[in-house]
Design a protein around this nucleic acid. Structure first.
Lengths: 243, 243
DNA sequence: CTGACCAATGTGGTCTGACCAATTTGGTCG
DNA sequence: CGACCAAATTGGTCAGACCACATTGGTCAG
């Protein structure tokens, strides 16, 4: 990793962990250059990334911290790596948003897709309830289904958001490996319902199926966090304060 | 506006209008410095913003354009200002995503809110069907309701996304002023349904109300675009190619 | 003709040092 | 305490330099 990215990461962590209050001025570029044993140019480059990330406002006279709710979505990945492990509440929130957007994508796809396209998506659903998949293969099948739905939705904004959230989320969930226990029968049942709803182009049944998946995910991850903590991995974590 | 932001904006526009294919290398920093009559440092700072925006990948040997679906959500605002006026399809997509997230926020709020909090939100719904508001006051009331729901949802990710989309969307819709015709009776009817659904904490009825609002918005903006074009404002616009 | 290899050239990363416009700070005065 | 002002500080931009890494083009062997 190069120097300006190291500086940017370090400052992002400082800001997200609350070392600077909203509206407070960061140290000057010259002071930061001394602190990081770097040239001021590298500091400036780092600050430009933070500005685009939406967590600072740079003006002559100093850069100030802005409320987290005004940040770019890319801040989520940084929040996930903020402490020893991600905040359980944040993880659940991400899952809820992803589920909501996948549902929207599916409904949009329904409006526009040919029967062949629907069938193509359905062929991705079927392994989820007909096959006996390993956890890894199951995850890959879910990912593949979600990606195909997003691609077929025609909603670029939806795709950008979902992709961004998944890219930030997935690499940071490895700590829960071994703790995630999917209720396979329930999953099969919901997948089958989704398959049938797609075949019937039944918008309401699709909505119901996604709500069921969302609830299942919430339970699964809540239990995984609980199991992780019961395994002696501590309970205190750095909670995010939005503003 | 300062020089590095001018350079960043100009390059962003070039990239979004397709002047560089995905994977193609941008001109070198030295060449860009000549083109923009600037110092290479300013070009580097601009490029760091583009990298954080997610539209380029900077490596020794050159910076290359990445697929638009890998961009940060902040790219949406840039897409909206890409041509003479925003792309109608993109506008509808944004509205659909905002509606979907507002629905999620409302459902999340339902799970956690006290009766007082629900009543507080309902008091923001009522002007929308009981009062006779000007278009401007109506829009402000809708915005206020949406903001309050997002704040009360407790879903930070949802808030960040919705806020980001609204911030990018709202300033770019002024060209449609005078062309937006809201079906006031339908709006009142849906607002009343939402109010009742909130009072009853009826999750399904809330979902139905938001779907109705989303459909109404889609119609309203489609008609506004059509009216805008029928008014002699051209029909060709720059469509976004994701990858 | 194709693929491998290598030297030359080009590109990004970082640095030193300078100057100017805009903001902040601290002192003075009413 | 608030207003005002000069000095100090801060961000914005610049020129020029050097180094590590990537790209390009030429040569040679199969």
């Amino acid at each position: 990793m190069n120097k300006h990215d190291e500086i940017a990461d370090s400052l992002t962590r400082d800001i997200l962990t609350g070392q600077y209050r909203v509206g407070e001025r960061l140290p000057s570029e010259r002071d930061l250059a001394v602190r990081f044993e770097a040239n001021r140019g590298a500091v400036r480059e780092a600050m430009k990334k933070l500005e685009q990330l939406g967590i600072v406002d740079i003006q002559p006279g100093g850069a100030r911290v802005v409320p987290l709710t005004e940040a770019s979505l890319d801040v989520v990945g940084h929040m996930l790596v903020m402490g020893e492990r991600p905040d359980a509440k944040l993880v659940i929130q991400i899952l809820e948003v992803i589920a909501s957007l996948t549902r929207l994508a599916t409904e949009s796809m329904l409006s526009n897709a040919t029967d062949e396209e629907i069938e193509s998506i359905r062929s991705l659903v079927r392994p989820l309830y007909l096959d006996s998949l390993s956890e890894k293969a199951h995850m890959e099948a879910r990912f593949s289904l979600m990606s195909s739905i997003l691609d077929a939705s025609g909603n670029l904004v939806c795709r950008i958001i979902a992709r961004s959230l998944l890219d930030q989320f997935t690499p940071n969930m490895t700590f829960l490996e071994g703790f995630v226990q999917v209720d396979v029968e329930r999953y099969r049942s919901y997948a089958q319902r989704l398959d049938q709803a797609l075949g019937a182009r039944d918008r309401e049944a699709i909505g119901t199926a996604f709500e069921a998946f969302s609830e299942l995910n919430r339970e699964v991850f809540s239990q995984a966090f609980a199991a992780f903590e019961a395994n002696g991995n501590g309970s205190a974590n750095l909670e995010v304060t939005p503003s």
